[in-house]
């Protein structure tokens, strides 16, 4: 018989290296004569899309489009160290470094432009849609590239180097007390499953995922991280297991170490909550790891909801489910 159930899972995740380890990202920025710009950072884009995020941040600050920014990363001869692409830290940490660097390079330009526009303070200058001009006075503006070109002829160099460090302290080794990570990300997911009580097979029908991202710098990428995380979570909950025999991996192949296929993935609905994290770039915090955390709990809880058995060891294989069902039947007599 096929029975359906629904389960809920919540999770939290402290991002960054944590525990007082110097969690530093760096970035170099140069604004070119035509107003376009290059960002150099050590952060590796492992596929998650960090390069696009950095381009968006720089573009936002310079009043440009993302495609006007060249992002060059992870070449040790060229780029500064930005720490590892892990710990859900690149959007937050390197995003902050890029933001600081762009603002620094931009600040010289603002000072120069303020003089050009006879504006007493650079606060009165804005960069928007490829133009630089006086806030609130559309008649006094100039193509950004022209202003940069002019500034350079006058000896200004719009380059910068900046770093950003996350806040974190080591925990006490005997009590574990301390503030090891900052910031924390939160999320919850609901999974609806169907369990076949005869074969023990579990099919995940639907997952609703709601995650706290501070600010979604790119909603497409947020959704992509969530769907990817949910799918890895399903693999973790139901399929994946390295079989070891005296330390030897018995299934070192994709035909025996099974990850989900397109047909194993349920309908995924991804939502996010945006409550700005004051220390993050535009309020953003990371999502990479948190996206996969609640899934396993939601699936395991849903199995219990469907057939009344509690699976306590991963993965929840059909064998384990049938065995638990048999034990339950025995208990009930």
């Amino acid at each position: 018989m096929k029975k359906r159930g629904i389960g809920l899972g919540c999770a939290w995740y402290g991002t960054g290296y944590g525990n007082g380890f110097p969690d530093v990202s760096s970035a170099f920025v140069e604004i070119h004569d035509d107003g376009s710009a290059t960002v150099l950072t050590g952060a590796v884009d492992v596929g998650q899309g960090s390069n696009s995020i950095f381009a968006q941040i720089a573009a936002e600050e310079l009043g440009l489009r993302a495609e006007d920014i060249c992002v060059n990363t992870a070449d040790t001869d060229v780029t500064p160290d930005s720490g590892t692409s892990a710990a859900t830290r690149q959007t937050y940490n390197t995003g902050n470094a890029v933001l600081k660097a762009v603002r620094q390079a931009k600040s010289r330009l603002l000072i120069y432009a303020a003089r050009e526009f006879s504006c007493p303070t650079p606060e009165g200058i804005e960069l928007k849609s490829g133009y630089i001009g006086v806030k609130g006075d559309p008649s006094r503006r100039m193509i950004l590239g022209d202003m940069v070109f002019k500034a350079r002829l006058n000896g200004e160099r719009l380059i910068s180097a900046e770093s950003s460090t996350a806040r974190s302290t080591p925990v006490d080794l005997t009590t574990g007390q301390g503030a090891p990570y900052w910031p924390y990300s939160f999320g919850c997911q609901a999974a609806e499953v169907e369990v076949d009580t005869e074969t023990g097979k579990v099919k995940v029908l639907k997952v609703i995922a709601v995650h706290d991202v501070g600010k979604a710098l790119n909603p497409t990428q947020v959704e992509g991280q969530i769907a990817g995380g949910v799918t890895q979570g399903i693999g973790y909950a139901l399929l994946e297991e390295l079989e070891l025999q005296k330390g030897m991996i018995k299934n070192p192949a994709f035909s025996s170490y099974l990850i989900p296929t397109a047909l194993d993935v349920p309908k995924i609905e991804a939502y996010f909550v945006e409550e700005a994290e004051e220390s993050g770039p535009y309020g953003a915090k990371g999502l990479g790891e948190p996206a996969m955390l609640p899934t396993v709990a939601a699936v395991i809880n849903a199995i219990d909801d469907a057939v009344g058995v509690r699976i306590t060891s991963l993965p929840a294989t059909p064998e384990k489910i049938l065995q638990a069902l048999a034990e339950k039947k025995e208990e009930l007599g």
Partner: peptide, 10 residues
């Protein structure tokens, strides 16, 4: 057929 997953299943 009973397989471990929905496609590519032995």
């Amino acid at each position: 057929k009973l397989g471990r997953r929905e496609a590519l299943a032995i």
